[in-house]
Amino acid sequence: MTRMRTTKTLDLPLLAMLLAIGCVEEGEAVPDDDDAPIDVGVDVEEDEEGQLGGELDGLAAIPPPPGTSVWSETLYDDGSTRQFMLHTTPEGEVVFEELVEDRISAGPPEESTALDACSDDAYILTGWRWESKLRWYFHAGSTPSELTADDAEKAIKAATSNITGSHNSCGLADEVGASHEYLGRKSKAANISTGGNCLAADGVNVVSFGDLPAGTLATACVWFSGGVAKEGDVQLNKADHEWTTSPGSATCAQQFSVRAVMTHERGHTFGLGHVGEGSHGRLTMSPTIDGPCQDSESTLGEGDVAGLRALYG
């Protein structure tokens, strides 16, 4: 029998000190349709009949197959993010885990002012890595009208190579063994709904533009098992934002850099988590995108490179 349990991780590294706060029978919280997302609750209370209610800001995901987990990040245009994981145990129990942004980072202690990117070796690992090339597609038909498909494709490819080639301005050599292979254009969107929910994995890695909830800049999903990544999809919100591949241009106005946002999201795809914004805001993997018409996230800092080396060195 499938059961669902909601948990919350508090101020500790991934998968540490999980706090279980409830469980329900299949008919109470898990949809009959295997392809329907589960709305997950954290501040959950039992009513008089013992049933659970409440949601985590409407976040949801389709439960992955037994023995598999799905991770989701929603990146908002105000600089905030929300992350969670949905784990399905080999026995079929579905466990929700919220990831809190102020988890402890490896590297320097928290400071009131962000360190220089090339003097900051902080990083967080999410719990997965790729054991083979990331082979991926771009849904060129989703390109927004302000871009050409060729330019968008080039920027997304460059962002992916920023991670696998550890592109940085700190003079650090590329000692990262991660790799990717672009397989071309595909008339298929990322497995991410218009509500920003991770849908069922299909083993096809896709980057696309599309409609996401208002205030959302991008959503990324990664499916993994036993610490090994199986699929990574990214969707950029073209319904509420405009995008650019020339953020330094004099004509840029409130447009977000495809390469900058995708470099951040590709860091997640390859297993990097968020570091604290207050002390580590100059790193690509800090949670806040620095705003439109800039490209700073496209260049990795020391901590970003150190995390990739820890995974793929």
Rank of each mutant, 00 (worst) to 15 (best):
residue 7 T to W: 02
residue 7 T to M: 03
residue 9 T to A: 00
residue 9 T to I: 01
residue 10 L to F: 13
residue 10 L to D: 09
residue 11 D to T: 10
residue 11 D to F: 13
residue 12 L to P: 01
residue 13 P to C: 12
residue 15 L to P: 00
residue 15 L to K: 03
residue 19 L to P: 02
residue 20 A to S: 12
residue 23 C to Y: 10
residue 28 E to V: 02
residue 29 A to N: 04
residue 31 P to Q: 05
residue 32 D to Y: 14
residue 32 D to V: 03
residue 33 D to E: 15
residue 33 D to M: 09
residue 36 A to K: 11
residue 36 A to P: 03
residue 36 A to C: 07
residue 39 D to L: 14
residue 39 D to P: 01
residue 40 V to N: 10
residue 44 V to T: 14
residue 46 E to L: 15
residue 46 E to V: 10
residue 47 D to V: 04
residue 49 E to W: 14
residue 52 L to I: 09
residue 60 A to Q: 12
residue 61 A to I: 09
residue 65 P to Q: 14
residue 67 G to T: 02
residue 69 S to D: 13
residue 70 V to G: 05
residue 75 L to Y: 01
residue 76 Y to C: 10
residue 78 D to I: 12
residue 81 T to C: 09
residue 84 F to Q: 04
residue 85 M to W: 07
residue 89 T to Y: 03
residue 90 P to V: 01
residue 91 E to Y: 01
residue 93 E to A: 10
residue 93 E to G: 04
residue 98 E to L: 03
residue 99 L to D: 00
residue 101 E to H: 08
residue 102 D to Y: 06
residue 103 R to Q: 13
residue 106 A to E: 14
residue 107 G to T: 11
residue 111 E to N: 06
residue 112 S to V: 15
residue 113 T to R: 09
residue 115 L to G: 01
residue 115 L to T: 04
residue 115 L to K: 09
residue 117 A to R: 07
residue 118 C to G: 04
residue 118 C to F: 13
residue 118 C to N: 04
residue 124 I to R: 15
residue 124 I to T: 08
residue 127 G to K: 10
residue 131 E to L: 11
residue 131 E to F: 03
residue 132 S to H: 08
residue 134 L to N: 06
residue 134 L to E: 05
residue 134 L to P: 05
residue 136 W to Q: 11
residue 137 Y to E: 03
residue 138 F to D: 03
residue 138 F to T: 00
residue 143 T to Y: 04
residue 144 P to V: 01
residue 146 E to K: 05
residue 150 D to I: 06
residue 153 E to L: 06
residue 155 A to G: 06
residue 157 K to Y: 06
residue 158 A to W: 10
residue 159 A to S: 12
residue 160 T to L: 04
residue 173 A to Y: 05
residue 188 K to D: 07
residue 192 I to M: 03
residue 192 I to C: 04
residue 201 A to Y: 02
residue 202 D to H: 03
residue 204 V to F: 01
residue 209 F to Y: 04
residue 212 L to F: 00
residue 212 L to V: 00
residue 213 P to E: 11
residue 215 G to H: 02
residue 216 T to Y: 01
residue 216 T to V: 09
residue 217 L to I: 02
residue 219 T to K: 01
residue 222 V to G: 07
residue 225 S to Y: 11
residue 228 V to W: 07
residue 233 D to L: 03
residue 234 V to D: 05
residue 238 K to Y: 01
residue 238 K to F: 00
residue 238 K to L: 03
residue 245 T to G: 04
residue 248 G to E: 10
residue 249 S to I: 15
residue 249 S to G: 14
residue 252 C to Y: 09
residue 253 A to Y: 13
residue 256 F to D: 02
residue 256 F to N: 08
residue 258 V to D: 05
residue 258 V to E: 06
residue 258 V to M: 09
residue 261 V to R: 03
residue 263 T to I: 05
residue 265 E to F: 06
residue 271 G to F: 11
residue 277 E to H: 09
residue 280 H to L: 12
residue 281 G to Y: 11
residue 288 T to V: 15
residue 296 S to Y: 13
residue 297 E to V: 10
residue 297 E to Y: 06
residue 298 S to D: 14
residue 298 S to E: 13
residue 301 G to F: 11
residue 302 E to N: 03
residue 306 A to F: 13
residue 307 G to R: 08
residue 308 L to A: 02
residue 309 R to W: 08
